[in-house]
Every structure is written in structure tokens, then in C-alpha cells.
């Protein structure tokens, strides 16, 4: 697989990125190079700046310093090639609209201003819904969806965009087993098509299974590379240990670390809503 990346323009290249909210740095001097065609998990404790990093790659934030290149060009010129799956909680599911309508929003970018989606967009949206196993719910009001269904609607919306890079913010957060499997299948399909996926991920146990690259982030970049090379106890301790030095958690990790990869605390703690950008 590594051969394929050689000599190619990386899908995403982040250089010296520093982002701050008020005085607090959310990201400090982060470098990241994501070769085309990998599934990359971004892991790190709460407040590590994971969502912030995604938003910066999308060009939704203005960094204090540094730049982001997408296929060698500024992100503004490459919007069509990126698609984004936000956290489920970031939108109001009481909004009066249907599943199909939300999925069709993925086509708005190429439609541009004023033009309305038509039959073609509708067909594509239905096909994407089919792909995530939601076709028969296409007329359902979004207020009636379960959490897993909401997540799949968002995934279908991203698929409709037919991008080269997929940015996902905690796609596995709080979903049922069925949806989790559906997402995994989808990730594999995307990899087979040579797409790049960058996902904020929480469940450390499943990182080696679902992803092939991993970035360990805690405001600064701790490590990034193929899972086999960088996903080790040393790096995990650097990532989670420093931040939680005062908490009992750190001691626990030290005691139990030899046996397992650091336990997934943040999930049992009710999810990562404090990524600085929330």
C-alpha cells in the first residue's frame, strides 16, 4: 500500500497549524500529512483539539498560524473534493424536513447558488440511502429517527457529495451495533475506491481493526503514521498521560497499561463534547 503513496501529492497536508480560542491554544504547531487512500483515525483525550483540527482542514476556522493544503492547494479551491460528517449533536433534529431532503443537501455544493436539486439529485440521494440501508426511510421526518439512523443519514449525505476526502467527526459515537457495522462496511468500500477518510475516533480498542493510519493528538501532535508503527503504549501514554496527570485516571493507566492499550475513558465519560470547538 505504501508504494501507492510514493511520489503522489498527499490528500491533506497540514503545516505548523496553530489555532486558539481566546487565549487557549486548541492546536499548537500541528503538522500532518495524510497520503491519499488511507483511513486515518484521530485519537486523543477530551479537549485535545480533534474537532478543531477537522474544522481547520475544512477551512471553517481561521488559524493563528500555519496552513492547510488539500491535494496541494488551499482548501477553498478544493471544496468539492472534501465532504464532512459532523457530530450528530451539532444540528437540531427538530428541523422540519425529511430524510431524503437532508441527504440531497450533499448535492448543494455542486448545484451552487439558487439552482434547485432535481430528479438527478434525487436519484443520487436515494442511491446513497440504499448504500447505508436507509432507502425505505427516505420519506421519514428526521425528528423520528434513532441515533444510529441519524448517523447513517449524515453518512449518506456525505456519500452523495462524491468527494475524495471524507472528514468524519466521531461517526461511531453512540450508534447501535447495526449502524456500527454499516459504517465499517462503508469505510472499507471507500478505501477500496481509493478515497481518503479522516475520522475522529474514540474507541481505542477498535482503532487497529477499523483504520490503517492513526494520529495521536493532544493539542500538539504526538505521533502520526501507520497503526502498526505508531499506535503503541508509549505514544498513548504521551497522548493521554500528560493531560490527565492530575486525575486518578493517569495512575490507573500506569497500573493497567502493560496488559491493554489504554482504556477508553472518554467514552464512558459521556462522550467528547469538549473538543474546544464544541
Amino acid at each position: 500500500m505504501a508504494d501507492r503513496h510514493n511520489g503522489k501529492v498527499p490528500a491533506v497536508e497540514v503545516q505548523d497549524l496553530t489555532v486558539a480560542y481566546r487565549e487557549q491554544p486548541a492546536l499548537w504547531d500541528v503538522d500532518l500529512t495524510v497520503p491519499s487512500g488511507v483511513l486515518l483515525a484521530i485519537v486523543g483525550p477530551n479537549g485535545a483539539g480533534k474537532t478543531t483540527l477537522l474544522k481547520a482542514i475544512l477551512g471553517l476556522l481561521r488559524p493563528v498560524a500555519g496552513q492547510v493544503l488539500v491535494f496541494g492547494q488551499p482548501v477553498v479551491q478544493q471544496r468539492r473534493r472534501i465532504s464532512y460528517v459532523p457530530q450528530r449533536g451539532s444540528v437540531d433534529w427538530d428541523f422540519p424536513t425529511s430524510v431524503l431532503d437532508v441527504v440531497m443537501m450533499g448535492t448543494y455544493g455542486e448545484l451552487g447558488w439558487i439552482r434547485r436539486p432535481g430528479r438527478r439529485e434525487r436519484e443520487r440521494a436515494l442511491a446513497a440511502l440504499e448504500q447505508v440501508g436507509m432507502r425505505e426511510l427516505s420519506d421519514r421526518q428526521i425528528s423520528q429517527l434513532s441515533g444510529g439512523q441519524q448517523q447513517r443519514v449524515f453518512l449518506a449525505r456525505a456519500l452523495v457529495q462524491d468527494a475524495d476526502i471524507y472528514l468524519m467527526d466521531e461517526p461511531f459515537q453512540g450508534v447501535d451495533a447495526l449502524t456500527e457495522r454499516a459504517i465499517v462496511t462503508l469505510l472499507q468500500q471507500l478505501r477500496a475506491q481509493g478515497k481518503t477518510v479522516i475520522a475522529v475516533h474514540h474507541d481505542l480498542q477498535t482503532v487497529p481493526e477499523y483504520f490503517d493510519w492513526v494520529m495521536l493528538l493532544n493539542v500538539r501532535r504526538i505521533a502520526c503514521g501507520p497503526v502498526a508503527q505508531v499506535f503503541n503504549e508509549h505514544n498513548l501514554r504521551l497522548t493521554y498521560g500528560g493531560r490527565f496527570a492530575m486525575a486518578a485516571f493517569a495512575r490507573e493507566v500506569d497500573e493497567t497499561a502493560p496488559a491493554v492499550i489504554a482504556p477508553d475513558r472518554s467514552r464512558s465519560g459521556g462522550g467528547d463534547h469538549g473538543t474546544g470547538a464544541a
Binding site: 493532544n218 493539542v219 505521533a223 493531560r243 496527570a245
Partner: peptide, 9 residues
């Protein structure tokens, strides 16, 4: 930073 990531954190 990698050398002293803990401290930096």
C-alpha cells in the same frame, strides 16, 4: 515537543 510532550501538555 515530542521529547517533552508531557510537560508541554
Amino acid at each position: 515537543p515530542a521529547v517533552e510532550a508531557g510537560k508541554a501538555g
